[in-house]
Amino acid sequence: MLTAVLVGCTAQPDPNATPTAVFSSDEEAFAAAEATYRAYVDALNAVASDDVDALDPANFLVGDALESHNQTERAFDDAKLRVEGNTRIVWITAGADSPGDSMSILVCLDVSATRIVDADGADQTPVGREETVLLQTTVVELDEVPAISKSVAVDQC
């Protein structure tokens, strides 16, 4: 599933950079993490809607999240699959124990309006797929640009 399925102009962080900046407060870190994740989902939805002006969702990713996204993209391309429909954020809340250079968030996504289709338009969505997914996500600040560095499904919400 495309990173859980996973605006404005945002500068793409260097995927090889290491976290150096520190959020000035937990509130600032959460606000940046939430805005970044919302922009990422907006980009995913725009791509799924064939919006030619869509930002590349990879622009919001670094590290493990970017690697996972790229692997999923290759697998979907090889299998001639695509995601149709929109993912909806149900809620985002702060996670536990965020170090100063990152913010851990929990994201509840509603993927019930999405489906995976093949080149002929046939539905290939896994039977029994849950309608919601809970993600443990880490957002880091690299070169003053927040980026998603890790996002792992941990449950349904």
Score class of each variant (00 low, 15 high):
66 L>G: 09
104 S>M: 11
10 T>S: 11
118 D>Q: 03
3 T>S: 05
6 L>D: 14
69 H>V: 05
153 A>R: 05
9 C>G: 14
29 A>T: 10
96 A>P: 00
143 D>K: 11
150 K>I: 03
15 P>W: 05
48 A>G: 07
54 A>R: 06
80 K>P: 00
10 T>D: 10
120 D>M: 05
6 L>G: 11
68 S>D: 13
128 G>H: 11
37 Y>K: 04
38 R>G: 05
40 Y>I: 03
143 D>I: 04
19 P>L: 04
146 P>W: 04
147 A>G: 10
15 P>A: 06
9 C>I: 15
53 D>P: 07
83 V>G: 05
6 L>Y: 13
144 E>T: 12
27 E>G: 08
51 D>T: 11
97 D>F: 08
23 F>A: 10
43 A>P: 06
120 D>G: 09
37 Y>C: 02
16 N>C: 10
82 R>F: 02
71 Q>L: 15
142 L>A: 10
117 V>G: 05
116 I>D: 08
145 V>G: 00
145 V>Q: 13
28 E>P: 00
6 L>Q: 13
100 G>M: 14
1 M>C: 05
102 S>Y: 05
135 L>M: 15
156 Q>P: 01
82 R>S: 03
66 L>S: 02
30 F>P: 01
103 M>D: 12
68 S>L: 14
48 A>E: 01
38 R>Q: 05
54 A>I: 05
125 T>D: 03
26 D>W: 03
106 L>Y: 06
23 F>L: 09
114 T>V: 01
18 T>M: 12
155 D>A: 10
103 M>C: 13
2 L>G: 08
111 V>R: 13
77 D>V: 06
104 S>G: 07
108 C>N: 09
22 V>W: 11
95 G>L: 06
42 D>Q: 15
7 V>W: 05
54 A>S: 08
114 T>Q: 01
41 V>Y: 03
3 T>W: 06
133 V>H: 01
67 E>P: 00
85 G>D: 08
105 I>C: 01
53 D>N: 15
